[in-house]
């Protein structure tokens, strides 16, 4: 039966109506996923706090420096289990790949003084299957043993199937280590580095170490296939980072994360917001934060990047006189006005 509008000018049949409705529904179904947010909850703090500390070298005084830095924040870890997650990928003689063990020791001491019930170090190296060899060669083994700090190999920890709280990769769930999921206070301790697959590897990318190699392989190839930037966001949405201590005393530029060159930066970055921490680190490297996909997208629901929303304490954040070198594919990250 014909349907008429405005007299006899426009008329559609029932079939036309049904076809049109179906087309509209299909179009909506296709476009909606691109318009709806891919995260489950907006976890941005109203304000974030970042402290940049000037530290010229690794020394036994790091614990005092770090303790002073932590006093700039309101941190309550009393009777809590603190998990420190350093960046411990592999060991290549002469390359500054990993978070320095002295900084991890200093962090442990500081959190113990703040009343933490226990402080442990946990990591699942992404390249080397022999975790203990990485610990031994990178100087961690002796340090942790001397200070009686427990270490957990996240590549072989007990696993719990964990639904992801964001949908950037399309993965519904990941098997993640019990140690991290049950921690009260997770501290990401990245090495400030460039990364040939995503531009930078900072506190958010550092979460790749949570993904167990025993289940997903070495390197954590599934995250590359699903998209590195999306994987970073899915992981950070699922396992919240409570604090960041970024090692930029000697950073890395160029062909990171393994074969770049050392870049003395002389900074430690502390933050109570991983997105603000990474944005600050990126500025210190001479990069435009808005061009780094996971930082830009993370600012929608995980944390703040706008200087207006970040309380900057400690040293001033200035772009370096010469920006960090990058592989050609990521040179667009360089901020304007920075010498390349």
């Amino acid at each position: 039966m014909p349907v008429s509008f405005r007299g006899d000018r426009v008329s559609i049949t029932r079939r036309d109506f049904l076809v049109g409705s179906a087309a509209l529904a299909a179009g909506t179904a296709v476009t909606t996923p691109f318009l709806l947010p891919k995260y489950h909850a907006d976890r941005r703090p109203k304000r974030s706090r970042v402290a940049v500390l000037d530290v010229e070298q690794y020394s036994q005084h790091l614990d005092q420096i770090l303790a002073a830095g932590l006093r700039l924040f309101t941190i309550d870890v009393r009777d809590k289990t603190v998990v420190l997650k350093p960046n411990l990928v592999d060991y290549v003689p002469g390359n500054t790949i990993n978070t320095h063990p002295l900084l991890v020791l200093a962090a442990t001491e500081s959190f113990r003084r703040l009343g933490a019930k226990s402080v442990l170090v946990a990591e699942g190296p992404g390249h080397q299957r022999d975790t203990r060899l990485v610990l031994s060669q990178s100087g961690y083994e002796q340090c942790l043993k001397d200070e009686k700090i427990r270490f957990v190999d996240l590549n072989r920890d007990e696993l719990i199937r964990t639904p992801l709280r964001a949908g950037y990769t399309g993965m519904k769930a990941l098997w993640l280590p019990r140690t991290v999921l049950e921690a009260d206070f997770l501290v990401s301790m990245p090495k400030i580095k460039t990364y040939h697959w995503s531009g930078v590897t900072l506190s958010m990318k550092n979460m790749f170490g949570l993904v167990p190699g025993e289940r997903y392989g070495w390197p954590k190839n599934i995250l590359h296939w699903k998209g590195i930037q999306g994987s970073i966001l899915d992981l950070c949405a699922t396992v919240p980072i409570r604090f960041v201590i970024a090692d930029g005393i000697v950073a890395m530029e160029g062909n990171g994360p393994l074969n770049g060159t050392a870049r003395p930066l002389g900074k430690i970055v502390l933050a109570d917001d991983p997105v603000a921490a990474d944005a600050t680190c990126a500025r210190l490297m001479g990069f435009e934060t808005g061009r780094i996909t996971h930082i830009c997208e993370g600012s929608r629901f995980l944390g703040n990047t706008s200087p207006v929303l970040i309380d900057q304490v400690g040293e001033t954040v200035n772009a370096p006189a010469t920006a960090f070198q990058l592989v050609p594919e990521f040179r667009y990250l360089h901020a304007k006005g920075v010498w390349l």
């Binding site: 390249h127 299957r129 040939h196 070495w218 062909n255 393994l258 074969n259 592989v327």
Partner: peptide
């Protein structure tokens, strides 16, 4: 051998004993 990436970005990647 390492995990399986001998050369990345024209840079030789170090081998691992266990692999």
């Amino acid at each position: 051998w390492n995990a399986g990436n001998g050369v990345v970005y024209e840079t030789v990647v170090a081998p691992h004993p266990d692999d």
